[in-house]
Design a protein around this nucleic acid. Sequence first.
DNA 1: GTAACGATCCTC
DNA 2: AGGATCGTTACA
Length: 170
Amino acid sequence: MDQRLPKEFYTRDVLEVAPALLGKKIIRKGASGHISVHVISETEAYRGTEDKACHASKGKTPRTKIMFETGGILYMYLIYGMYWMMNIVTGSREEPQAVLIRGLMDVSGPGRLTRSLALDGSFNGEDLQFSERIWITGDGDRVEYSTTPRVGIDYAGAHWKMKPWRYVIK
DNA sequence: GTAACGATCCTC
DNA sequence: AGGATCGTTACA
């Protein structure tokens, strides 16, 4: 099986990591030992306390503190009372950043993909270097992608809403 | 305590 | 266009 992406892959700036994750494979190992592989097709970057669309813009809270850790771990949170969002923390410690996984080749939609992979709050803080149930490999199919503004952040104001920080495989 | 609201999705 | 559904957050 392919090698896991190294820690250094995730500790770079989120604006580098988010597009670099396109085409990479999420490996999910279920409780029964069943393994499934999913190619990432769509990501979004959330960057720092100054980014009004980023949860960390409200400062460090019980929910967002995981984003202040060193990159390479998962940040899971519940939205609209029923959908878990899967995010990958990036950057260095005390530099809150995360990549929202918005779509896979076989599933589109951040809520649908976590339901499909059976991911929930118990994965918050999961370390992609050492986890036995989820990790990401980096065999290097280079992919072409396009960028668009991020989705669902009307509240963040025009300046942050227009940033082309959503990355989609062509 | 209390209230408002969301990095969504499905059904009408 | 509207409802589901509840943790997180801000404020009193």
